[in-house]
Structure formats: C-alpha cells, structure tokens
Design a binder for these strands. Sequence first.
DNA 1: CAATATTTGCAACCGACTTGCAAATAATGC
DNA 2: GCATTATTTGCAAGTCGGTTGCAAATATTG
Lengths: 136, 136
Amino acid sequence: MDNKALLHKHGLRITDTRLAVLSLLQNSSKALSQSDVERSLPQQADRVTLFRVLQAFEDAGLAHKVMDAHGVARYASCAPTCSTEQHQDSHAHFHCTQCGDVYCLEDVELPKVKVPKGFKQQESHLEVEGRCAACA
Amino acid sequence: MDNKALLHKHGLRITDTRLAVLSLLQNSSKALSQSDVERSLPQQADRVTLFRVLQAFEDAGLAHKVMDAHGVARYASCAPTCSTEQHQDSHAHFHCTQCGDVYCLEDVELPKVKVPKGFKQQESHLEVEGRCAACA
DNA sequence: CAATATTTGCAACCGACTTGCAAATAATGC
DNA sequence: GCATTATTTGCAAGTCGGTTGCAAATATTG
Ligand SMILES: [Zn+2]
Ligand SMILES: [Zn+2]
Ligand SMILES: [Zn+2]
Ligand SMILES: [Zn+2]
C-alpha cells in the first residue's frame, strides 16, 4: 500500500505536505520534532501547517508522539495496527542525554506497579536514557 | 534534621522562599510545576526566583524533575540519599491522563532492553498512565 | 558591624505550541 | 471536466514555560 492509500485509509485527504511528512517519518531512524520536520522537508510549509499535520497524524494513528527531555514533542511513524481508535505503541524509547535525540526501541514486557488506592492504570512506557552511537 | 539544616547540608543558603518551597514539595503528594508552586506559596515570589530555586534544588539533590504529559517540568522532593553528586530516584511515576497530575510511585525492578549497536544505556524510568483517584 | 558571596526581582527575550479567519485546494457528484 | 462542498493551508497574533543579564537586596563570615 502506498502512502496515498495509507492517508486515505486513515481518513485524511492527500496533500503534498502530508505525503512528504509521512515519508520523512517513515524513513527516519529517530523521532522528529516539528522543527526537525520543517528543516528536513524537501518543500517548504508553514509551521502551523506542520503542527496540524503532525497533530492529524497522531489523531489518525499514523504517528505517535514522544516528549523529549526538554518537553518538546517528537513524532515517529506508527505500527500498521494503530488507528484513530487506538494506538498500540507499547515499545520503549531511548533518549540521548547528549544530543537529545529519541529512538523507538523494541517492545518490552513491563513489570507490574502498585498504584495508590483508587488509581486506574491504563498504559505504561519505559524511557531509557544514555548516549546514542554518535555521542557515545 | 529541620529544613534549615537540610538546605545547609546541600550547600544552599537559607532564604524564606527556599524554606517555603521545600516544605511545599515535602508536603505534597504530587509533583509540582513551577506555576503550581507559585500559586500555592504562602508568600509571594517572582517566577524567575522560583525557577532558580527549583533548579538549585535539583542540582543540590533536594528535588527531582519529572516532565508531565505536556512537557512541563514538575518537581518532587528527593530521597535523603540524593545529593549534588547523584540522584537515586529510580522509582516509577504515574501520570493522570485527565488532570495531568504526576505522582511518584515505588521503586520497581526494570526489564533489560536491547538498544542499537553503539548505544550506551545509563538510566531507565517507567511511566505509568491512567486516572488518579479523583479522576477515575 | 563590615566585607563578601549569593540570591532576588525586573525587564526582556526565546522557542514551542495554539487559535481564528480568509484564501487555496482536495474530494465528490454531475 | 466542472461546479459544489468540505477540508487544508498560511498568516497574524497570542499564550505559556523556560531562560539570561544586571543591579539591588540579603545571607554568611569573621
Ligand atoms: Zn500508534
Ligand atoms: Zn516510538
Ligand atoms: Zn533525587
Ligand atoms: Zn519521583
């Protein structure tokens, strides 16, 4: 399935910017911030548009958002099983303490945690810190 | 040991604002953002001062910083074993998806994760999402 | 109490995030 | 293809958290 069909399947109209951003995310080994996308995009697009494209991708289950160590949102493409209804991104993330880059890691079995009385658990995420290959 | 001695032990001068912020963190069941602190403080202080107080607490090992789901820093008081040299806050954190509040949880044994070749792991943190007692 | 080092408040700036609105554009049906 | 409609885009502008430089205020030292 090409990306036009992919966008359509997730209920989004096909535009040049969306196609370009989608490819960018798919071909990146790391999660990209909005400004990363803005800088890497072959064509140029307004910041607000990129903000909304990334937001739409997240809503549609095409990309998931990870906060980096500075609290800036970074996006990575989703597994094919993600949809508008539900994301299935249970994998861990690696945060480089030097350059700040964020990488998706494999799925991991997470330990059970005891929460205070009355609290309801939904999902858990593991965040790993360290140095990436370039910085180590 | 009272808080004056505690500040002194961590190499910080004793000021009214620092004492008040320290008590606030110690008596809070949740992690507090800078603006939480500003709102809850009995006395009033400039927001830059609070920023620097929290920053100093983190450097000194008196408080640790957790990013909430919106990428805003929240602070919680540290275990007595934390110091300028090293933090020992290996516990998990609970993030309420409704109100956004962050709570420190117990220590957990974390699973080993495989990272890409050349990457160096340092620390890992577990983030649990769900509803807190008030929101559930 | 004087001398010194630190902390505070203020003004100001930055970057990320967000919204409203009008113009441009994609999808739909003839 | 062409008109109609719903969506997307760009721009202006505003919000908020985080951050710095500097001078005034204050804590510590002796
Ligand atoms: Zn997903
Ligand atoms: Zn991921
Ligand atoms: Zn600590
Ligand atoms: Zn904590």
